[in-house]
Nucleic acid binder design. Structure first.
Lengths: 241, 241
DNA sequence: TCGAAGGCTGACGCACCGTCAAGGTCAAGC
DNA sequence: GCTTGACCTTGACGGTGCGTCAGCCTTCGA
């Protein structure tokens, strides 16, 4: 007969695990010898291998407990189910592999494809990395708040970018970030912006955003660029008058 | 800005998990609004996706914590390592799949191939299922106790089975289990057995087994068959005289 | 005969949250 | 103005599957 260590080593589990299985009633306690040591018959090896095989497959001990007493038909069905579960896990692990690999690729994989496409388009147009990041952050918040609207809004934005005037305006606005707040070009830019705002107010993102949210989206703008702050004032003068 | 629930749902984790990450310092606590609610900027989404991607790959939170502040080279190396780990896990899962599938095939896959081959040979020779089970249990105990000797012993056994006289003897012994203890054939069988024992004592399994272990291996024999008990007596008379 | 190795029974610890409990807050509808 | 229901807060306990002492006893090999 076998000592607990021999049993455990042969099957490939720890002694602690075997005792744990006894404690929870999963593996029956064997007879003890004169000194109180556990002495295992061959059947314990078979039982323990079943347990280890199932737990290694991720089956919780309570479920293993049920399965040990299930009739063969139930058992076979359960085995089938477990194997399907394993197949699913393998699939998940594969996806996690690509997910982890994508971590090196920066933001590309984190965001919905429409958004990353849009951001790429901006980069192509010569928008600064800073500007792209502002857009990215804005769209992340929007996507989290109104996931099903974002594709439509993005489509609208892409349409706008088809207009050369708008592209010109967008790039200039991006560059204005670093201008001197006294730069006279800000007045021209403010004219264009005010006109555009009047034109588009009804049909874009603004339709669902509360004033509060709009101000929050624009907050980092005001945090960093004196020129943009000035521009904001100039536009405000033109739209409220 | 985002509430905790929007953030959690967008990234695909639970609110509880996000708070847990705050508690452990893994994700920085964001600003609170007037009522004490957490308000998340876009960066939190990016951070949280990194965390989730790594933890989903099985990286412990403490390690994620380190990685969040690692420089790109370290990070890339870690990613590589993690991906290798995932590949290994996938391999393991595959093996577990076949392991689980084998549970339906009875004992075949539990035991070393030499042993199952040997047991199959016995079945071919007409040894009863009960006899095969006795052998199986004996070999399980032996394999667990002296794993590296078993192949040699099995080889010896297989050699013995090449001898037609031995095969005849073995099958007869197996059948004797159900004989009447007064059956006269037991005397003939005891003669053959005693002769064999004298011949083989030095070269087989007996060389390493303590008397204690031998008796334990034979115990179930004496538990169930009056004929075998009688046979044991008869053999003992012949070998001790 | 002695020391190393192995056995026994508790009992605490751990990672990663799930799940109350016991509230406070916000948006919408009456 | 008030209610209702969804959402937020902190705090604490629970659960799985053992790992890891601690403190003591038994067995084995030299």
């Amino acid at each position: 007969m076998l000592t607990i260590k021999r049993l455990a080593e042969y099957v490939g589990v720890t002694v602690r695990a075997v005792r744990h299985y006894h404690q929870t009633g999963l593996l029956p306690e064997p007879e003890r010898d004169a000194s109180g040591y556990r002495r295992y018959p061959a059947q314990a090896v078979v039982d323990l291998i079943r347990i280890r095989t199932l737990t290694a497959a991720g089956v919780p001990l309570t479920r293993v407990h049920e399965l040990m007493r299930a009739d063969p038909a139930e058992f076979a069905a359960a085995i089938d189910e477990i194997n399907q579960g394993l197949a699913k896990q393998i699939e998940e692990l594969r996806q996690r592999q690509s997910g982890v690999a994508a971590l090196q690729a920066g933001d590309r994989m984190f965001l919905p494809a429409e958004i990353t496409d849009y951001l790429d388009r901006l980069r192509e147009l010569g928008v600064s990395e800073r500007g792209v990041r502002f857009e990215r952050d804005g769209w992340i918040v929007l996507a989290a708040s109104y996931p099903d609207q974002v594709p439509r809004w993005i489509a609208q934005k892409q349409e706008q970018l088809a207009d050369p005037d708008f592209r010109q305006f967008y790039v200039t606005y991006d560059q204005a970030h670093d201008w001197d707040p006294a730069d006279p070009r800000l007045h021209d830019l403010a004219d264009v912006m005010a006109a555009r705002l009047r034109q588009e107010a009804a049909q874009t993102v603004h339709e669902v955003l509360s004033a509060d949210e709009k101000s929050l989206l624009g907050q980092h703008v005001r945090d960093f660029s004196p020129a943009w702050i000035r521009l904001d004032e100039l536009v405000r003068q033109r739209t409220t008058s």
